[in-house]
């Protein structure tokens, strides 16, 4: 009866096929190797994660240790500098290198948990809007557009003024104010998938709603949301530094990149090395995350992979 489809050429062209989970990882690895910018992005981001996790080991001084005698020492490559403090010291004699390392902790914590909260909230709200449709959908989307239209910074200043300065508050503020973006993307994807052939096919096979959500829609949401999370994390790390610079983020004693930038501002003429290092750390992290996000966007969509005949 039916014709056998395999040919010698099919067999050849199917060599690169993903059979097991290990194969898929290897395939991803190959894609990463082929896309050099994704590789660089991943490496850049991993250095930041490494610094944050192993901060006590990597750093040379406790970040809060003051040593007024050594204050405002220039970096090692200045004539007066020493390798004791490779990036120099600040006005209170704290080691800048160690503070930059510890600063990664604040930034990554804010970025990671902020994105987690924003993502969870956004996923929830967006799914409700996308699934229910009709009046509920238009109402939710109306509110979301309203929030997105509010001057962001004003909103943050207002909340920070009420809730006070702490790491948790910063994370909560970012989590809440950033969730509309995740909600919008989720809703769009849900709407698109609800009309997709495979969801219709699942309904035709007798699937109930929970199955359709958890088996067909959620797994397909992961790709776009992880990509978005990468970009949003980079944005949050920047915003946190901005807030820190304005004195609205974590208390000044905490070594965060934003706080260090703010503190260095006063000494730009006398000790110009105070601000560049936290600034460079910020740029490094943001560039790494953005390169990684670009690569993830391409890789996480199975439809973009080469189709084989």
């Amino acid at each position: 009866m039916a014709v056998k489809e395999m040919t010698p050429h099919d067999a050849d062209s199917l060599l690169e096929v993903e059979q097991t989970f290990g194969d898929r990882l290897r395939y991803l690895g190959r894609l990463l190797w082929r896309d050099k910018s994704g590789m660089i992005g991943l490496l850049m981001f991993l250095t930041v994660v490494f610094a944050a996790v192993f901060a006590p080991v990597v750093s040379t001084y406790p970040p809060l240790e003051q040593n007024l005698r050594d204050s405002k020492q220039p970096p090692a490559w200045y004539a007066e500098g020493s390798w004791d403090h490779p990036f120099g010291t600040d006005n209170l004699g704290r080691d800048i290198y160690s503070r930059v390392i510890y600063g990664a902790r604040v930034s990554l914590t804010v970025g990671f948990f902020g994105v987690m909260i924003a993502g969870t909230l956004g996923l929830l709200i967006g799914s409700i809007a996308g699934f229910s449709g009709g009046r509920t959908d238009s109402t939710i989307m109306g509110v979301i557009n309203l929030i997105l239209a509010l001057p962001y910074l004003l909103f943050v200043v207002f909340i920070a003024a009420i809730l006070g300065r702490s790491l948790i508050n910063v994370i909560l503020i970012f989590g809440i104010t950033d969730s509309p973006i995740f909600a919008r993307v989720t809703r769009g994807e849900v709407l698109r998938m609800r009309q997709s052939g495979y969801v219709e096919s699942a309904i035709a096979a007798g699937a109930k709603t929970p199955r359709i959500i958890f088996d067909h829609i959620m797994p397909n949401l992961i790709g776009p949301l992880i990509t978005l999370a990468t970009f949003e994390m980079s944005a949050m790390i920047f915003y946190e530094a901005g807030l820190g610079f304005l004195g609205l983020s974590v208390p000044p004693s905490v070594p965060s990149w934003g706080n260090m930038l703010a503190a260095g501002r006063g000494y730009l003429t006398t000790a110009p090395w105070l601000s560049p290092f936290p600034g460079l750390a910020l740029v490094w992290t943001a560039v790494g995350l953005n390169l990684l996000g670009d690569w993830l966007r391409d890789v996480l969509d199975p439809r973009l992979r080469r189709s084989r005949k």
């Binding site: 050429h9 099919d10 062209s13 084989r308 005949k309």
Partner: peptide, 22 residues
């Protein structure tokens, strides 16, 4: 009358007739 199999994968340079296996 159906033609069995699938057309050639153009990524593979052929040294013989592209229809041979069908």
């Amino acid at each position: 009358v159906s033609i069995r199999g699938a057309p050639p994968d153009l990524l593979i340079p052929l040294k013989h007739c592209p229809f041979s296996w069908r």
